[in-house]
């Protein structure tokens, strides 16, 4: 241990203005990616529970592939690999959003499947017994209940995806970690700056947690 090390508070607080520009990028990549991931997740999640086997297997393959490979490899593949086929570069922001989208999409499709399958069989039977079509039963009865149960795990996934964007510093997109690295390169205050970076992530995820808890308390989420 270096007994002479002293935490430099001035350097820590001084770094904040240099880190803040990373926050919009972090939010844009994570929520942009999650928005697409949500639709990907609904699409494959519903395919996954289709009564038709040939509709189920593409969903199974999708989930296994994109849940079973690291998101870092996925984003490197998109940013460095795909341009070889496309013949033109992909900008880092697009690559980051795409990586979050396909990766969170895999997890969200499992959340959707679990949510829908958690609704008691009797709900569907009661709907059908009243003469509702299968589509109506799903739209008016099954999905609204399933969605409430999906909100807590969706919030969990959002927090994971926000943190995952920190990996995208490797493709040079100017998110929080990247801003920290750039700043440290001139000041050499790694301890102070990474602590601030960590606290800024915590501020984002904690805010999200509080919002989600309010939703649950108002009975709009959970059971």
């Amino acid at each position: 241990m270096d007994a002479t090390f002293e935490f430099d508070w001035a350097a820590a607080f001084g770094s904040i203005p240099h880190l803040l520009p990373g926050i919009p990028w972090t939010l844009l990549i994570s929520f942009g990616g999650l928005a697409f991931g949500f639709f990907i997740g609904i699409f494959f999640g519903l395919l996954r529970i289709s009564p038709l086997r040939w509709l189920r297997w593409p969903a199974i393959v999708y989930v296994e592939v994109f849940r079973g490979t690291p998101i870092l490899v996925q984003v490197l593949f998109i940013f460095y690999g795909l341009p070889q086929i496309l013949g033109s570069p992909i900008n880092a922001l697009t690559a980051g959003i795409a990586a979050i989208a396909i990766n969170s999409g895999a997890y969200i499709s499992e959340i959707v499947r679990g949510g829908v399958q958690s609704i008691e069989r009797g709900q569907r039977e009661a709907s059908l017994s009243l003469g509702l079509s299968r589509t109506q039963a799903f739209r008016y009865i099954i999905w609204p209940q399933a969605f409430r149960r999906m909100v807590p795990p969706l919030g969990n996934q959002a927090i994971i995806s926000i943190k995952d964007t920190s990996l995208f510093s490797v493709i040079g997109v100017g998110e929080l970690v990247r801003q920290g690295q750039i700043y440290i390169a001139t000041t050499f205050t790694a301890m102070e700056v990474y602590l601030m970076v960590a606290l800024l992530y915590l501020a984002i995820t904690w805010t999200l947690s509080i919002l989600l808890r309010q939703l649950e308390r108002r009975g709009l989420a959970g059971q």
């Binding site: 008691e120 009797g122 009661a126 709907s127 609204p144 209940q145």
Partner: peptide
């Protein structure tokens, strides 16, 4: 139909 478990729509 009336079911043993009621099956009302809770939402």
């Amino acid at each position: 139909m009336v079911f043993q478990q009621f099956n009302l729509f809770p939402h």
